[in-house]
Design a protein around this nucleic acid. Structure first.
Lengths: 338, 338
DNA sequence: ACAGTCTCTGTAATCGTTTACGGTAAACGA
DNA sequence: TCGTTTACCGTAAACGATTACAGAGACTGT
């Protein structure tokens, strides 16, 4: 009894047949009943299971898809992930998650490393897009769809949200409910969503004649609760806002927490609204008004685009956008006093 | 220009050298400077990147580790994941997440499918453990560590929490702060953690002389917020508890939400405590008392065990346990009236 | 009885790498 | 000058599977 895993050769020898026959019965091709019998019993006598690596080398398919996200702790990716999984599982693919932190180098290594190898296709949602990433995307031959804005000439399928529209809806909503000093706790502005949201915020404030002094603007160095807590203190103290928009739900949650600790009531003193409309928004107290950027829909579309490209690798890259929708909850209700 | 990806043969031809030389310079083995030059320029002229599949077939390593969790939406797995990732990244492994839903068949397919192929090692945290899974674990040759209780004779490394101890701490804490009708919103009792926690709850209540009528017991059919909301209504209405223990933080959050909707104050009318002490516990209002089962520590230990086994495949399987710790927050403070 | 079909099986090539092995030529020492 | 060491390089054999191809019987129909 050799120590290493049994191979198809060993099974063949043990069953007294050829390797071809073993492969055939294991893949359910036409064979005689007694052949099936011999091979099957030899196989599970030895505890054989095929080497996936060797198999995919030959057939050039792995039956796996990779989904790369920036932060598994962010519920927005959970939504996307579920949608992607639901869509791709039906086609028999296994889904592999991979969490690249905030560092673009990670994404890059993924694009070059895993990209050509362990998966038949890739969905990625990079938070920072560097020139190197763009370049790698140009060069990539693996079917790929990216979630998030990329330059129009990058030849991959693309689905994106309308961040700017979302910010606009949020600010208009706050304006309509009487808020005038609206703060913005953004994520890092060297990220794709960060920069889009910053720009949009400035524009809509200008249009509505709202103040945009620096004291009303804060930038967390990550789209996380911890980073939000670090950054929001100043905004609250120096900006004296009557409303705060969070760059995503996590930042909004951090804002609520900081407000509570400092004795400000939400929404009576300060309204808070988030972005992404994740499950988090429903569990906080008060529940969080949030603008949905369609994470589930984006995941679904990304999966569909990927599956279509898998079927037809040569078709034109497509790009689709999904529209935002405001979900009003308690954190932005009208003041009860006033 | 051929359409398919360039191979080592092609860059060899293009550089006018042998494939062996190409492989050598690409792997940084000893070669002359001019050889390095020729190969390098040929390689990136063709945009060559090696086929990971073929490579790992030969060297029998993928440099990848797989971590399989039941529900990516559960923050407890996020904690574990981060810990595992931190530990394994240092050794140069890439971490692949894979989300098997609540269905044991998924785990099984993972154990047999991905198990022998795309990863050098596997960490899994199955929520249900069937005979088939036990059997597959006996048969597995891939280095594997499971997080969660398994029968003692299963020959894989194992790290587990002390659920029972955790439940005990939670209930004692509630008892000491004056609660007498303690409800329990558990997850499914056909799961490993579900059954352990149910048993422990019964025992500690008996010991303390607390009532355990059926009206105080509820069982959600998943460890999620939605399932919790479905199941907790009855418990609140019929059980009239003055405290509720959630089988995990998600169930506790669901409980708080349901209580709020029905006009009960937390903690004044009803105290709530969760288990797992996830990030969620800090963002709710009131903040959630929760017993930490050491998710980060468990992830860390699991990763270390796996790495050790990777270095020495023949050593004895180890099993370690991590102890719970109660984290008191606002949701279980003493009543202010009374 | 024989050509033609059909069904099953085995031999060997192949996927894209790595690497053991052997050969060649330059460098070295005496 | 002539072995011997050293440094490189190329040829070919793996890794473990799939599959094109061809051969071998077993049928069929005439």
């Amino acid at each position: 009894m050799s120590s290493s895993r049994p191979t198809v050769q060993r099974v063949a020898a043990h069953a007294g047949v050829s390797v071809a026959s073993v492969s055939r019965v294991l893949n359910g091709l036409a064979t005689s009943p007694e052949m099936v019998d011999k091979v099957q019993s030899a196989a599970d006598e030895l505890g054989y299971s095929p080497n996936a690596m060797a198999r995919s080398l030959k057939v050039r398919r792995t039956e796996q898809l990779a989904f790369s996200v920036a932060d598994v702790g962010n519920p927005v990716y959970v939504d996307m992930m579920r949608a992607v999984e639901a869509e791709t599982r039906a086609e028999g693919y296994r889904l592999l998650l991979s969490s690249t932190g905030p560092d673009p180098a990670e994404v890059l290594s993924l694009l070059r490393g895993l990209a050509h190898g362990y998966a038949d296709g890739l969905i990625l949602s990079p938070i920072r897009v560097t020139d190197e990433i763009i370049e790698a995307l140009h060069a990539i031959s693996l079917p790929t769809v990216v979630i998030g804005r990329i330059p129009p000439d990058v030849p991959v399928d693309n689905v994106r949200a309308n961040s700017a529209g979302g910010v606009r809806m949020a600010v208009e909503h706050l304006y309509e409910t009487g808020r005038r000093r609206i703060g913005f706790l953004n994520g890092p502005t060297d990220t794709v969503p960060g920069v889009a949201r910053a720009r949009a915020f400035g524009r809509v404030c200008d249009r509505l004649g709202l103040p945009t002094d620096d004291a009303l603007l804060a930038e967390a160095d990550d789209f996380t609760i911890d980073a939000g807590l670090d950054a929001v203190g100043d905004l609250i103290a120096r900006g004296e806002p009557d409303a705060v928009l969070g760059g995503n739900d996590l930042l909004a949650v951090a804002t609520m927490q900081a407000l509570r600790e400092r004795g400000h009531a939400v929404p009576d003193d300060v309204a808070v609204v988030g972005m992404d409309d994740t499950e988090l928004a429903t569990v906080t107290a008060p529940t969080l008004t949030s603008v949905s950027l369609g994470s589930t829909r984006r995941g679904q579309l990304a999966a569909q685009l990927l599956l279509e490209r898998l079927r037809d690798p040569d078709r034109e890259p497509q790009r689709v956008a999904v529209q935002p929708r405001l979900r009003v909850r308690d954190s932005s209700r009208a003041r009860s006093r006033s």
